[in-house]
Design a binder for these strands. Sequence first.
DNA 1: GCCAACGTTGGC
DNA 2: GCCAACGTTGGC
Length: 157
Amino acid sequence: MVKKYWLVKSEPAEFSIEDLAQSKNKTTCWDGVRNYQARNFIRDEMKIGDEVLFYHSNTDPNAVVGYCKVVKETYTDHTQFDPDNKHYFPKANPENPPWVMVDIKLVKMFKNRVTLSAIKENYKLKDMKLVQRGNRLSVMPVTNKEFDEILKMGNIN
DNA sequence: GCCAACGTTGGC
DNA sequence: GCCAACGTTGGC
């Protein structure tokens, strides 16, 4: 099976990589995704062992701040049934819940955070979905090359 | 805070 | 099925 590579976005005010580092086993369920395209990636393509860039959005500076591994594959996102949860989805049918999630575990925080502007300046990364116009997906695929280039820029070693 | 670019909703 | 209105994302 071929390993895939991903990028997930999170607003650090909601859930930052520091929060992930302090989570039990440095692992969290990636709940709250409410976009069908992103859901399809999570449900159909994210597999255990896939590697995931962790991106901070809506902050200053926006940046890839580390990377993770998928440690649990698609299962029901319980928050869709919880009226008190921000991501409550009243139309969710318990028989066939639309929203799923995976668990990701922190592998490494970057020494050098890879900012959005640095990504835009790197011609090797010009095709990343992240920097393409109008892209709002919170979960998106990246290529093996893009993933390696970001790790290099992050100076993980 | 602004606003472009989307995605979703709901009337028809 | 169309499409206007509305809500959200997310960079700046």
